[in-house]
Design a protein around this nucleic acid. Structure first.
Lengths: 247, 247
DNA sequence: CGCAATAATTGAAGTCTATTCAATTTAATT
DNA sequence: AATTAAATTGAATAGACTTCAATTATTGCG
């Protein structure tokens, strides 16, 4: 429809990004990617994934709309980029904090506080996760799956170490403890923010939850009722069998 | 641009919805609202909030695009409608199941299983929640906040009753236990689905998590007649499974 | 340094989707 | 049967994501 090549007016595109000597192309590209991710993080957290627009992000990053697409395939990929960056930072600071502490209890305590605090601060980011996790299957191929795995590995290591030196009793599946730990913290973050009470009230919320949680894990007494356990296993099998009959 | 009133061809709009006698307008409207919510639930769960389109929903509900907007203000409101409907059903079945059991242990156990099972089945629905919760403030005015509150009230009541009759030791804040309970179940549902192992593996995941969780709250272990309690749990589950086969 | 080749950037155009609204059909009422 | 009110329709609108041909910037080389 449009016929003539238009007189484009583009002036001084990257005027602020570069201008210092010996910056290689690669370094400038990396810098721009950072700028885009920062802008995206800001826009996503303030407006939410749905209402955030690519135009807003481009404007805040100081680039044209089209430029975003040379760095990220689409809006989805951009959001995933933001989350990936978040996980990287989270894992790094978590490891650091854990390493600088000695006892199992203080380490667990730190990890819990670190997690819930980060979540509450950058809540909008993790909220995008379920949106993006490509409908169930194929998620394990996703980069985010791996990043999440390395993050929670910090917790897993703590548990195993704690067991080895007798600080943590019981033999519950680490996966179960992990679900309880992170699940409670995520949910707790949400509900504390929703109550929307003041800063100090939230502090109290955090302390109560973290203490309880760590206490439960460290003080867990092993229920060794193997007979009962086996009974439930039997129930599992009966249920499965019945369902198969149904179909 | 378009000038002339067009010869519209609309034929037999509600031909399938009505056609029985003494259906009042109100009842037809209610039926149509149900149809829309059902269609929306289906489309939202299969495609996710973002990729689901109003046109898809309208088509599946058997109405014109515009009709959706006489029932729900916009896409957001429609999604909230779906969630509200979900919560209503969830609360009803939860209450019912709890009331039909006697001991604190079996009740808690049922509630946990009921929750995680429902979540896993209709996972896409609750995943929309964070998207819709109007950015923090003002959420307490939201209908969904109230519905969630009445739902978790079932758990709260259980805890208080359990304390009153000595089944649940300790004096931890109920809010903290609630965060741990529902948080662990939500998170556990996600991670079990993500591992995407088979049907029976997921059953085992659920059993492990629920047992641990209930054990932690009740104060655990094989102290007082837990074998008998667990036996009842097993009976519960067999009954439920049998009922499902029946349908 | 000048020039060709390559990479990055741009923004207008294309396409798809949520939402509106005037016209129309259907139900309730007198 | 006629009138009033409600519900429904679907084409039109506006705005968002994404593409791509044209343009600009950067690198490598003689």
């Amino acid at each position: 429809m449009a016929s003539e090549p238009v007189e484009t007016t583009q002036l001084a595109a990257g005027s602020d990004v570069l201008s210092s000597p010996n910056v290689t192309r690669q370094s400038r590209v990396r810098k721009r990617e950072d700028a885009i991710i920062s802008a995206a993080r800001h826009v996503f957290t303030t407006h939410g994934y749905v209402k955030a627009t690519m135009a807003m992000i481009a404007r805040e990053a100081g680039v044209a709309d089209g430029t975003l697409y040379t760095y990220f395939e689409n809006k989805d990929a951009l959001a995933r980029g933001v989350i990936a960056d978040y996980y990287a930072r989270l894992t790094q600071t978590a490891k650091q904090g854990v390493d600088s502490r000695r006892t199992t209890q203080t380490r667990l305590d730190f990890l819990a506080r670190h997690h819930i605090t980060s979540i509450m601060e950058e809540r909008g980011i993790i909220e995008m996760l379920p949106l993006l996790s490509s409908r169930l299957s194929g998620y394990s191929k996703d980069e985010l799956y791996g990043l999440n795995k390395t993050y929670v590995a910090v917790f897993d290591g703590l548990i195993r170490e704690g067991r080895a030196c007798g600080d943590i009793p019981g033999d519950a599946d680490v996966a179960v403890l992990r679900d309880i730990f992170f699940g409670a913290l995520d949910y707790g973050a949400r509900s504390s923010l929703m109550r929307a009470s003041g800063e100090s009230a939230r502090k109290t919320d955090i302390t109560r939850l973290v203490n309880r949680l760590v206490g439960m894990i460290i003080g867990t007494s092993a229920s060794t009722g193997s007979l009962a356990d086996r009974l439930e296993t039997v129930a599992d099998r009966i249920e499965t069998a019945l369902k198969q009959v149904g179909h």
